[in-house]
Amino acid sequence: MRGWLIVLLMLPLPAAAFTARNGMEVAQVGATGIAVAFRSGRADTDYWCAAGDYAQRVLNQPVGTRLWRASPKPREAGAGILFTLDPAERAEGAGLSQFGAGPQDGAISVGAAVSGHCRVIVPLWRD
């Protein structure tokens, strides 16, 4: 099952894909899957931001909704990352390291993904 997900994430997303606040392209996969397309030079946290932004603004999920990584680590070169809102679809050991109180299941809330990992990418314009 995971093999076709990796192939899917290596393909360009359709023109109707959502552009997250950090400029990354996101599309829905099935009922609970969120595919974030590969973007060169981006950190894993940028992918979490894009998935959280999609869940919040497109899927209208509340900020407390849990978000898991469904793609296993390590990510193949040139491949995007698949996320899920369903804990049964999560990839074991592929979540974020967490410290402190709360569930230690590799997930973060949609609100934490957006507020903690979204940074605005300001394009450099040339005149």
Rank of each mutant, 00 (worst) to 15 (best):
A50V: 06
V26A: 03
V63M: 09
Y54E: 10
G30I: 08
Q56H: 13
R57M: 11
V58N: 00
L59M: 15
N22E: 10
D53C: 11
F38W: 07
G33S: 02
G30P: 04
L67R: 02
G41D: 08
A20D: 08
R57P: 05
I34L: 10
S40K: 14
N22Q: 12
Y54C: 09
T65A: 14
R21A: 14
G64Y: 13
Y47G: 05
V36G: 01
A50C: 03
T45S: 12
A35Y: 00
L67G: 04
R57A: 15
P62V: 11
L67A: 05
R66T: 00
E25I: 12
A20W: 04
E25V: 13
Q61M: 14
P62K: 10
V58P: 03
I34F: 04
T65G: 03
M24P: 06
M24Y: 05
V63Y: 00
N60L: 15
A51F: 08
D53L: 12
S40I: 07
V63I: 14
R39Q: 15
V58K: 08
Y47V: 04
Y54G: 12
A35S: 04
A27Y: 01
R66S: 03
R66W: 09
V26H: 04
A37F: 01
E25W: 09
G30A: 08
A51N: 05
I34C: 03
S40T: 11
A20E: 08
N60S: 15
T45A: 11
I34S: 05
A20R: 06
R66H: 04
G52K: 02
D53T: 12
A20N: 08
T32Q: 09
I34W: 02
D44H: 05
G33C: 02
D44K: 06
E25C: 10
R42M: 14
N22P: 08
A31H: 01
A51W: 06
T45G: 02
Q56T: 05
A31V: 10
L59T: 06
